[in-house]
Amino acid sequence: MNYALAAGSFLNSPIGIILIYVVIIGGFWFILMRPQKKEQKRLAAMIADMEVGDTVLTTSGFYGVVIDLTDDDVIVEFGSNKNCRIPMQKAAIAQVEKANQD
């Protein structure tokens, strides 16, 4: 039996072409989309564990300390000036460092 002829006829059939596209799209999903979903889950868990007193880094690059939390918002205190308190969405938090539990 001529296997090259059998493989060539399979690749020329509509089912073979669809199967190749499915394999290519599946490969791209594992390479591109899956790591992004993992990072989104990690960030959501980090924000859910955020507490008052934690140091945060905002998406704009500012470091501050969390002084109040609500369901969707957080109030962050910036710098040594205790009057600089800015409310922002939790989605604007890029990184959380837990307060020392000494």
Rank of each mutant, 00 (worst) to 15 (best):
V56P: 07
M46Q: 13
M88A: 12
S9P: 07
L57R: 12
I15H: 05
A91D: 15
G79T: 08
Q101P: 00
M88Y: 02
I17F: 13
N83C: 02
D54T: 07
V66P: 00
S80W: 07
F62M: 10
A4D: 13
G8W: 10
P14H: 12
E39I: 13
V52N: 01
D71S: 03
I67N: 05
R34S: 09
D102W: 14
K90A: 02
Q95M: 10
R85F: 00
V23Y: 05
E51I: 08
L43R: 06
A6G: 11
N81L: 02
F78L: 00
N12K: 15
F30P: 01
P35F: 06
I25S: 05
A48T: 05
W29K: 09
R34E: 10
A44R: 14
I86N: 00
G53T: 06
I18G: 09
Y63M: 03
I20H: 07
A92F: 02
Q101S: 15
L11Q: 10
K98T: 04
I17P: 06
G26W: 07
R85W: 00
M88C: 06
P35A: 12
D68V: 01
A45T: 12
E51T: 15
V22H: 01
G8T: 11
K82C: 03
A92P: 00
S80E: 04
K90M: 08
V96C: 02
I75L: 01
Y21W: 05
